[in-house]
Computed example of a mutant assay.
Amino acid sequence: MRQYFSLSHISAGFVAILVGYTSAAAIVFQAALSAGATPAQVSSWLWAVGIAMGIMGIALSVYYKHPIMIAWSTPGAALLVTSLPGIAYSDAIGAFLFCSALITICGITGWFDKIMKLVPQSLATAMLAGVLLRFGLNVFPAFEAETLIVGAMVLTYIIGKWRQSPYAIPLTFAIGVILSATQGKIDMSGISLDLTVPVWQTPTFDLSVLIGIGLPLFIVTMASQNVPGIAVLRAHGYQTPASPLIGWTGAMGLVFAPFGGYAFNMAAITAALCMGEDVDKDPARRYLATVWVGVFYFLAGLFGATVAGFFAAFPSALVAAIAGLALLGTIANSLNAALSDAKGREAAILTFIITASGGTFLSVGTPFWGLLVGLAVYGLNQRFGRG
């Protein structure tokens, strides 16, 4: 058993989950609130994602002996924040099930690569950038509301990125928490260390919600999360079969969606923290770090109510700022990828603008319409040989 208790494995696993939670848990929290979830349902969301990621991470890492880390879909959560207001909670759960069913089918049939080829990467990243843009735009209003706190967070973020620190986001979050606490703007009185009771929601299925939310959630999760997640494994020399991994993330989504588990996928950035030489000189033993990631996620899931209360205690400006700053890199990379192909640039910018505009048409959200218009323009340009 001693091999499972290496300090390097444990610390790498802890850092990975710390980066994951400080970078994205606030967005998941906002997504649950946007769905009209009650406090108990918000806790259930965090229970579902933590338990599911923990179980899958441990099981797949031990089975394949590869550092496999499962994560929630951060871009998916961002999509939900902007798309779920006004949608019935049961319809949202139906959309989660629809998304997970599509992911499962892709995994079981081995259609993963074929499906993704139908959507040009430039359009998928343009849609993602449009979804995330509003988070970046929220940083300055947050600065106006809490100038000292958010200003210090932005400064910390800039210095961290300048120094190329992998801990820029956790440090930024820590500065925001410390300043908020010293100004008495964090109310921890309602937080207690209690086990979370999951809340079941019977799903309902509305076609416009399935098309407007479920389908974009599937595309964003596959294109911006699963594709890079598999690429990170390959880049580190792990030739784990992709289809079974994708299939399991979808299957767990089917199980946990009624409790708030909206979408699961392969981790990319945080997974890379567990794959370097500093984790273990022997690549064959690095999977032990992701086993510990699974353990920490499972524990975080058990105490989802505490995690939910923790984020609810923060000032809204802090939550908005950390969400926006954490996604700036993704927004920049997505725009760069979307516009780098000259032949698809016109279609990509239309996809981006329509998606970023927000709102709905025929009760269907703009991510779907942005992607649809982009695909039409892209197809016409390809057909007639125009850029």
Rank of each mutant, 00 (worst) to 15 (best):
F173Q: 07
A348D: 06
S208T: 05
A347S: 08
F259Y: 13
T351D: 01
L325W: 10
A24W: 00
F112Y: 15
V232R: 13
Y167I: 04
L328N: 12
I191T: 10
L133P: 04
F140V: 07
R345F: 01
I159G: 09
Q382W: 00
Q41A: 13
F29M: 09
F112S: 13
Y89M: 07
D280A: 15
T109R: 08
V209E: 05
G324K: 03
A317R: 08
C99H: 11
L102M: 15
L18C: 07
M69I: 01
L380R: 11
I178G: 11
A77H: 04
L84V: 00
D187K: 12
T351C: 13
D278I: 01
A71L: 05
I353E: 02
L375H: 03
Q121G: 12
S340F: 06
A71S: 15
L302Q: 10
L7E: 03
M275L: 11
F296K: 09
Y167Q: 11
A101H: 03
V199E: 12
F112M: 04
V154R: 14
T104I: 08
G94D: 02
F135Y: 12
G214N: 02
G160L: 02
L123M: 05
T82C: 00
W292K: 14
Y262A: 10
S189A: 14
V199T: 12
L299C: 08
A129Q: 06
A40Q: 14
A31V: 09
V227D: 12
A48Q: 08
N138P: 00
V150E: 13
G94P: 04
L7F: 09
Y378S: 10
G276T: 11
A332R: 15
L123A: 05
I105H: 10
E146D: 14
I51A: 08
S224K: 15
Q183E: 12
V279P: 11
D187R: 09
R2I: 00
Q30P: 00
I93W: 05
Q41N: 09
P67K: 08
G130T: 01
V373M: 12
T125F: 15
A326F: 08
G136Q: 06
M69Q: 15
A257R: 07
L328F: 15
C274I: 00
L380Q: 05
T182H: 08
G304C: 13
M53W: 02
A317D: 09
D91N: 15
L46M: 12
I322E: 13
S192G: 13
T22P: 05
I70R: 09
G261I: 02
M153H: 08
I186E: 15
Y378K: 14
T306L: 14
A321G: 03
G253I: 00
G86W: 01
K65D: 05
Q121T: 05
V373S: 10
D280E: 06
F173C: 12
R286F: 08
A88N: 10
S363C: 05
L155T: 14
A251Y: 07
F298V: 03
I115L: 13
G304R: 14
S90Y: 01
P203Y: 08
F298P: 03
D206V: 03
V81E: 02
A124Y: 04
T221W: 03
A332W: 07
L380H: 11
T240N: 06
A101W: 09
T330S: 14
I10F: 06
F112I: 03
G247M: 02
H9W: 11
G260Y: 07
A320S: 10
Y262T: 02
Y238M: 11
L362Y: 05
